[in-house]
Write a protein that binds this DNA or RNA. Sequence first.
DNA 1: TGTACATCAGTGAACGCGCGTTCACTGATGTAC
DNA 2: TGTACATCAGTGAACGCGCGTTCACTGATGTAC
Lengths: 198, 198
Amino acid sequence: MRDRPYHHGALEEALVAAGLEAARVHGPSGIGIRDLAKQLGVSPTAAYRHFPSLDHLVAAVAQRARELAASRMRDAMDAVTIDDPAERAWARLTACGRAYIEFAVDERPLFDTAFAPITTLPGRPDDPDAWALLRSSLEDVAAQGQLRAMDPQAAAVFAWATVHGMSGILAGAAIPHGLDVEATTDAVLDAVRRGLSV
Amino acid sequence: MRDRPYHHGALEEALVAAGLEAARVHGPSGIGIRDLAKQLGVSPTAAYRHFPSLDHLVAAVAQRARELAASRMRDAMDAVTIDDPAERAWARLTACGRAYIEFAVDERPLFDTAFAPITTLPGRPDDPDAWALLRSSLEDVAAQGQLRAMDPQAAAVFAWATVHGMSGILAGAAIPHGLDVEATTDAVLDAVRRGLSV
DNA sequence: TGTACATCAGTGAACGCGCGTTCACTGATGTAC
DNA sequence: TGTACATCAGTGAACGCGCGTTCACTGATGTAC
């Protein structure tokens, strides 16, 4: 006489989805087996049918969060409408970085979840993959002859480090007093371009 | 007939020092009231004579960790021996950034402790202060007429973001496969200079 | 110089909580014959 | 087409742990008179 069938049917997916919502509000430490099971009207033990431990569930949620960030980056890149090939390549790289920073600011707990130190490797590659998007947009810039002679790996690390660090600064409590976020983001992205261009 | 006097004498300092050692190995979450009290041969309650809560103790340890990072940066800056004023200013800025990155790599858990999101404000300013060191070395570069026209605040955020992000990449598990750490650090610091210079 | 007394820095036991995880078990599903 | 049975996905209760924190209390210290 229960209103819910004995078998949930899609508990694994439901756990990840509910975990993502929890992480959206409270970050990675907000994901708990007992908590999520309660929300889904299921016993805590049921979760262990799908994940060997909490760590694995957190890793699945983190992957989902990274993919969310990456898809925002991809969308921002696709929204670039400039025709000139060289400027287009730069604009796509910049859009990619800006989207990363905006994700950190808009969805701070999710950002923390996405890029927290990895404890358990995911079972499949990220799709889309943020690092791959960055690499490919840098390759476009290079293909336009815009990149100065430097190790392409180092160039990618430089670009990533800057937007990642900027995200950390804006997302953390460490924002320098009275900082104009948008203007500073523009200036930082411009400095990245100058650091990379011929 | 105890070998230890009833009053410890310097428990506050001892707690911070022991907390720093714990954080050095296990990061901020490795700092625990019961644990430190046990190490010092004191009851957990005694800690509450000196800190209203664990959070305050952690904040004190974090400040100590930041100051440790900052003093490494200052030492590295002071070790620069170049005479030419403009090159000297750049070298000091670079040394400062490199020391920050090296601290993250050498003392990862301490780095995590130092720059974790702040929960409780410290009772006194950092001494030395990492952000102030960076600002002042950038001012030196500007005073040498080497800095291109940009908001000085944004310039500082750009430099800090890059080394902070680089630290995060190197300290996290997210190191791209087969990365040459030293060479990449050099390349990134060089890109920062290019991003800032006239 | 001695003494009463306020204050400070400790003790030791206990509370209460929430967590991940495990155990023995049951309801539902699907498949071989 | 029906049925036995392996397998899968749940239940519900409990374990055990370690933590921060609190309580009533005591030993040591310093200071006013």
